[in-house]
Nucleic acid binder design. Sequence first.
DNA 1: AATTATATGTACTAACCTGTATCTTTTGTC
DNA 2: GACAAAAGATACAGGTTAGTACATATAATT
Lengths: 185, 185
Amino acid sequence: MKRAQIPEHLIDVAAALFNRLGYRAAGVDQVIAEAGIAKTTLYRHFKSKEDLIVAVLRRIDEHYRSEMRQAVDSLGLEGKPRLLATFDFLEGWFASEAFYGCPFICAAGEYCERSSAIFQESVMHKRLMVAYFEELARAASFDDPRRIADEINLLHEGATAVAHITGDPGAARKAKSAAARLMED
Amino acid sequence: MKRAQIPEHLIDVAAALFNRLGYRAAGVDQVIAEAGIAKTTLYRHFKSKEDLIVAVLRRIDEHYRSEMRQAVDSLGLEGKPRLLATFDFLEGWFASEAFYGCPFICAAGEYCERSSAIFQESVMHKRLMVAYFEELARAASFDDPRRIADEINLLHEGATAVAHITGDPGAARKAKSAAARLMED
DNA sequence: AATTATATGTACTAACCTGTATCTTTTGTC
DNA sequence: GACAAAAGATACAGGTTAGTACATATAATT
């Protein structure tokens, strides 16, 4: 492996591991074993496990939002259907093997202090998600794009939690149908 | 303290600690210190930490559902307003100091394996919640009480996640208003 | 009052954790 | 090819973890 790829590879491996086992349950020894790098190398790139977790969350945030944008844009829809398409993206995620609930909710649950960098990373991600929904709602010419964005967000979070616990990706479709009716008025 | 009270007291203390610090982050040493009992005593009542966590979740489930029932019943409402009253209960919870997100979502996030007794306890709780919502929807004479229950559930889960991350209890009111519109049709 | 069951206290095990120190080997650059 | 930076390997420190052993004390029961 090229040296320049190490940090990214490390983050990818760590993300998968934290996601699958939990942030506290997965140790740095497991991360380096799976990544095939030395512990010294990990600690050269990240000053602590917490630092690594923050990097992981930041990467997941970027990846998640850009993937969602791309999925939504690729359908060439406008207005309400564009907003509703975000739920189709959700369903694909829920059905994937790598789905173990929202990584940010899980991380915030494990690092409970609001002041922790990990919790704050989750706060930031959720803010950006609502901002995206508001952008879509504004483009769809809703009277109150803020309210629509909040409601889409509630349904996204709800669907994610429900799919996590029940294991049923269909939660996304139910949320989509609810969202469609909320946008009718 | 009376001997008969020990198990319950232990569960209460553990529940508060797990909730505040996280299930893996809070150790049994902290639990026994806060509860003022000996470690031997804890392990006489619970064969392992996992066993204690299951007992904690079972207690939270019973407590949560009975408190919600009581809060909803006390208002003497019928039909849709009765369903909507569940969101007022949520708001009270969100505003309390003991709110650190949904204990079941957090627990399931830390003990990721679906087969684990802890995860299954969360599955059970969520099932019972939907059953309660369906009971209310049926009493309100909805054409499709199952669908209404699922939607109320989505909004409850969404509001809980949003309130957890943003720290804003107002998520409950937004979810309530969305629920009200979903029940109009 | 005697007996039985349970709680306490202390010490301990054995594993695991994050993070560091040290030294050797590899890699990229001039 | 020489030199510097970074990766590897190994070992280790210092702390925490869940869980147990055992001897003593305190309840509850008969």
